[in-house]
């Protein structure tokens, strides 16, 4: 009697847990479903090519134009700009922590970097708009400081701790014996770093960069506050732009539910979702291969 009761309970717990374990998949699937359900109707009005390649985003004009090329290019532009900041800074700092920092310094700095990676994006956006933008406007004598350049700079600083932290993990997985072998052949520390350690950790570092990129592309508050918001195809870094995330965040509050504009914003979200999805999948498969290569298992 006791046994059968016990056995029943065990099975029950197991089944309940196994159902709950699929919650992430359920949510991921629901997100995709919702995006498609709300986003696809726009393609009855404009075809996919016109949507992605259209040069004009005038969703509130009569007749409206739903071309997201300016938004896509703006996202691309600020991401590229941010990469110029966070890749050298992030990887450079990771190399510093791995190669130059003393054991104690490294331990403290790593924790510090991790803590800094937790600073919410609204803080970066706020810093940008309250301090950096007026400063840049004066310094560079710009018509407006709210431009792709400010957004890129702040996004880059924001992504640096992430890139640094993941790259440092990758560097620390490189077996000591690799370095020792190189030293034994008369290479100095810098040569060892460049010729042995970085190549060995290369795929780990590249997955850090891709994850950083994914974070930057999907970031909303910073670009919403700093990029300026003009939906025009960007020509230089010093004019206002409107990346995809900013368009969604700024316009969703004002659209009528079920309107073409509403569907168009969801369609942008589909594209955004798939860009980050692809980045994440690539980053994950690179880092898995990397760990397998170094014999670290999963």
């Amino acid at each position: 009697m006791k046994f059968s009761m016990r056995g029943f309970k065990e099975k029950l717990y197991r089944n309940v847990l196994s159902i709950l374990a699929f919650s992430s998949l359920f949510f991921l699937g629901s997100i995709v479903l919702v995006l498609f359900k709300e986003g696809l109707p726009i393609f009855k009005k404009v075809n996919f090519f016109e949507f992605v390649w259209g040069r004009f985003w005038y969703p509130t004009y009569e007749p409206p134009e739903f071309g997201i090329l300016p938004l896509l290019l703006a996202s691309f532009q600020v991401t590229l700009g941010a990469m110029f900041v966070c890749v050298p800074l992030g990887i450079g700092s990771a190399l510093y922590l791995n190669e130059i920092a003393s054991f104690k310094q490294r331990k403290i700095m790593k924790s510090l970097v991790e803590i800094l990676a937790m600073i919410p994006s609204i803080i970066y956006g706020f810093f940008g708009i309250a301090i950096l933008v007026p400063f840049l406007q004066n310094l560079l004598n710009l018509p407006t400081g709210l431009c792709a350049f400010s957004a890129s700079l702040v996004l880059g600083i924001m992504a640096t701790p992430t890139v640094c932290s993941i790259s440092e993990d990758a560097l620390s997985y490189v077996p000591r014996s690799f370095k020792e072998a190189s030293f034994a052949l008369g290479a100095n520390r810098w040569q060892t770093l460049v010729k042995v350690v970085i190549p060995a950790a290369g795929s780990g570092i590249s997955s850090a960069v891709i994850l950083g990129m994914s974070r930057v592309v999907g970031e909303t508050m910073v670009v919403l506050m700093l990029a300026g918001g003009a939906a025009v195809i960007p020509k230089t870094f010093f004019e206002p732009v409107r990346p995809m995330t900013a368009a969604i965040a700024a316009e969703m509050g004002e659209v009528a539910m079920g309107s073409d504009h509403y569907h168009a914003l969801f369609a942008i979200a589909i594209i955004l979702f798939f860009i980050t999805f692809v980045f994440n999948v690539i980053a994950e498969s690179i880092s898995r291969k990397y760990r397998l290569k170094l014999g670290l298992g999963q």
């Binding site: 992430s24 949510f27 991921l28 629901s30 997100i31 919702v34 995006l35 709300e38 994850l211 994914s214 592309v217 999907g218 970031e219 909303t220 995330t245 969604i248 965040a249 969703m252 914003l265 969801f266 979200a269 955004l272 979702f273 980050t276 999805f277 980045f279 994440n280 999948v281």
Partner: peptide
């Protein structure tokens, strides 16, 4: 992949 979904997409959802 859920961890990598942009936060604004969660907002839409």
């Amino acid at each position: 992949n859920l961890a990598g979904v942009p936060s604004v997409v969660f907002g839409l959802f």
